[in-house]
Design a protein around this nucleic acid. Sequence first.
DNA 1: TAAAAATACTCCATAGGTATTTTAT
DNA 2: ATAAAATACCTATGGAGTATTTTTA
Lengths: 306, 306
Amino acid sequence: MLTLRQMRYFEALASARHFGRAAQTVNVSQPALSAQIMEMEEHLGTRLVERNRSGIILTAKGTQVLQRIRIILADVERLEQTARDAEGILAGLTRIGIIPTVAPYLVPQLVPHLRGLYPQIEIELKEAVTDRLIADLADGKLDAVIAALPIEADQLETRLLFSDRFFMAMAQNETDILSSPLMENQLDTERLLLLEEGHCLRDQALAVCGSAPKRNLVNVGATSMATLLQMVSHDMGMTLIPEIAVETEIARNNLRIVPFGNPAPAREIGLVWRRSSSRVEDMAALADAVTGCRRPAGKGAELEMA
Amino acid sequence: MLTLRQMRYFEALASARHFGRAAQTVNVSQPALSAQIMEMEEHLGTRLVERNRSGIILTAKGTQVLQRIRIILADVERLEQTARDAEGILAGLTRIGIIPTVAPYLVPQLVPHLRGLYPQIEIELKEAVTDRLIADLADGKLDAVIAALPIEADQLETRLLFSDRFFMAMAQNETDILSSPLMENQLDTERLLLLEEGHCLRDQALAVCGSAPKRNLVNVGATSMATLLQMVSHDMGMTLIPEIAVETEIARNNLRIVPFGNPAPAREIGLVWRRSSSRVEDMAALADAVTGCRRPAGKGAELEMA
DNA sequence: TAAAAATACTCCATAGGTATTTTAT
DNA sequence: ATAAAATACCTATGGAGTATTTTTA
């Protein structure tokens, strides 16, 4: 079996052109170096050096082999260097999965904030429903997931990032609900618009509003908050909207955001990672970055807008 | 110290994603593989894999390291392959030195002939005086030398290629010598034109013609046979010409080639190589190619031309 | 004869194996 | 409770050292 030791000795020999001196440069005895070179020649089935009274000369094969060996040794050098380069906090690649009802509202704030704090960071983002993200996290395809808690799998570690209160989004001209704040379970669930299956917000909306609607105005679930709110503004019904989405989505025409009464229903958004990942510091830094990039949450009352 | 063994084990581990199975693929026990991976991590100062209950996941560092390792292992593979590729006779690079009084007349025949016989051959030619060529040969900068014998250095092996008879080249209108064949030591050495110092033919010419001329018509030695014959054809004197040059040089105007009487003086052209080179077969093939590429030598008498 | 590489041998570090413990699920 | 990796401990291989012989110039 060819070894790096043999290559290092051979390189020394080719440079020194002399067994004794080569042995000195690699700090071994001449017989030790001789033995390794001989074993190498034996293993490769070729004479690599011509032995002369004064110094050695590489054979044609030896010259070819030397070229390749120099490349390999340089690559090994770089490997060791790469491995030793201390990665600071969040230096290098971090693959983050974020659920679709958070991603579009958090990412534009979070990513520049992270880049500012950790210039060396490389971020890879994936947007998918919780189950998909957690599966990828467990497989090692992701390093962290931002999703609504609770997350059950217990080889995972979790940290609460923030509470995200729910509001009701309805058309401006909506007459069914005149007074605010709303009381839960007091809503016309037949007019409730939902995301498609798999989105945790769908289940949370159903939980907040009491039960599954018998028949929805729109049977096909929407694929994003944006679509949902588009539908709302076109008088197709109403929907639950998390606080994080409000600031962005309120810009739509014909949209009215109504808070719930106390205690306000909310979802808990958390950071999730593999317990075995040993990137505790990175995860703490990431969590801090998420909480740090969000402006202080507005009061519920302030969101009652025309 | 990082080893190829560690890299091979790590590659297996990354592929199998499981210590036990990885150990099987490289035919060692699980603890043996574990130990090597741990040592590697220790040496590199980084955690490379996350250990889980079911299988392992590479860390970011581990992924980087794996990429480099795969390159290195592939290069080692190719190195072993390269080394094992049997080079046939005269396949690969052969560096040949030839003296200037032979090169221009032999090379145009020899090189195409060699290419025909050994399509894989790579030839590097150097033209210089014997001493320079022999020094380069000893240093391993050349693999073979074609020069006039004898060559003294005794770490060298020699094989006679052919005998190269001498003729006298003079102007057509030269009146001093009326009869042919010439007798040695019967020449007007004062009119003898010589190559510059260092050329063996210079010394051979002096040996043939008896002694060093007291004063030459041309004090500065010529740098090539071609120059010398140019001078001869311009009535500046006469010179010794080896048979190998005759066919090419006779085309000149006003040139008369006169043979010597028996025994005709001649030089012995031989092939020289390092005894330690272990390329005996290549040298034999090269020597055969040289003798094989030369047309049967013409009779001396046939060269007495107008 | 002398310089250099190969051999002979001895020793020790290290890789590897088996049995067992620890760990995490 | 179980599967997997780490640890303990022993063995064996192989790399290295010193002393010596062989080679060849």
